[in-house]
Design a protein around this nucleic acid. Structure first.
Lengths: 241, 241
DNA sequence: CAGTGGTCTAGACCACACT
DNA sequence: GTGTGGTCTAGACCACTGG
């Protein structure tokens, strides 16, 4: 059930296992108690609780003191957002022709706070993105050296990075967290986007982790607001509290 | 520092204490290490980690393996986009106190293109929103006359509109589509938000429908980007390829 | 190397829900 | 009372960062 020999943390393996059983309806109403899970997986209670807590935070489970841990009957949204489906797909869906220009591709030291969620050294790929030949966004991807070096071997003017990661490098993206806000564009980037200096852009910041819990990518995208907006479809959450 | 005699769990007390010190800028860049916190508060490492984990999940802190735990420099209010949340809920979740000032409440003719997803005549409610007494957003809600008239009978300085809709008017919100972009704030609104004229704000445009598919609300919100950010967590579906 | 967060164990007692 | 989740301890070892 759980493989000790893998270098994947037990609580992550357990968490994935439970999530799988929820999705396949093996667990429909309730999951086993924490002490039962300890025995089933031969792990400590702390490890069980860590795994369960993750699923509670993600909306899969609901804990009830004194009774048990229940499967949330209103499961969370689990689709990749279109913005993550790659710029390429999004632009194509709008009936426009996407293209790219590689600006930078180099190794550097992660000093900034957010970037340092990755290792000390990172590989940075910077691309200018077009729709129908008009500049729309500047994207910076930061990768662990090992991944970045391999990505750099491909023609990044042409390829979709997420396709490369999954299909060529065999890295399964698992979870991503994104922040959307706005900021003033840096002067040297303004001319690439063909907007006046001092203009505001939409800022997207993203961290992607793989199924082992490792950070795979840190990303910053700056989008021209006159060319790009984010669209989100949401449902009202009935979860009381 | 921590009162053992209270019925409040230690990890909650610790969590609140840290959150307080972040908000008052006692901790600006980094918080003490986990082992330091153990000594400072006379608790076990597990308890420290539980408290810290909560603050990481809530967006206050960022952990970096081998280096330390850092204060997140992003705007203090983070709205989860996975479900439809009200301003009130979002602000409360961040441990701040929400309040409102009603600016406008009147019937008008829907001439603009977007508003006319509603009927010809609409009811508009405009509110200035605060978190801990600081202005954060200006929200305009547009409703069909029948709904708007009834809403206007309540004290909109106090109430949560979505609560009123659901609990008092018996209208169940179901789905919403949101667009997020950025724009320059109008001059007459800048002073309400206490920002320089010409500043940029985050712009949210939203249409809500009920379970029958009727348009219930059209909404425009303008948010101060130094106070508010949008957060999205997306997950790969294991069952699908 | 020392210091940091990451993982994990074994065990204890408390608070709550149900019978 | 029994079983559940909630809280907490003390201690161990690993992995990473940085001097």
């Amino acid at each position: 059930m759980i493989d000790e020999t893998l270098y994947i943390p037990l609580h992550i393996q357990l968490s994935k296992s439970l999530e799988e059983k929820i999705k396949t309806h093996e667990y429909v109403e309730r999951i086993p108690s924490e002490r039962e899970l300890m025995d089933m997986y031969n792990v400590s209670r702390t490890t069980v609780r860590e795994a369960v807590t993750k699923l509670v935070n993600d909306g899969w489970l609901i804990k009830v003191h004194g009774k048990g841990t229940y499967v949330n009957q209103r499961p969370p949204i689990q689709e990749w957002l279109s913005s993550l489906n790659s710029f390429t797909e999004t632009v194509r869906r709008m009936g426009m022709i996407p293209s790219s220009k590689l600006l930078t591709s180099k190794k550097l030291v992660a000093d900034e706070q957010h970037i340092s969620v990755l290792k000390n050294e990172v590989y940075m790929i910077e691309r200018l993105r077009y729709a129908d030949g008009k500049p729309v966004a500047i994207e910076q991807h930061y990768y662990p050296i090992s991944i970045g070096k391999r990505l750099a071997e491909f023609n990044l003017d042409q390829e979709t990075i997420y396709d490369l990661l999954e299909n060529e490098l065999g890295i399964m993206l698992d979870e991503a967290e994104q922040f959307i806000t706005t900021t003033v564009i840096e002067e040297h980037l303004a001319k690439f986007l063909e907007i006046p200096k001092g203009s505001n852009v939409l800022l997207v910041e993203r961290t992607i982790i793989d199924s082992k819990g490792n950070v795979i990518e840190y990303y910053i995208g700056k989008y021209r607001p006159d060319m790009y907006t984010f669209r989100v479809k949401t449902k009202r959450n009935i979860t009381k509290k």
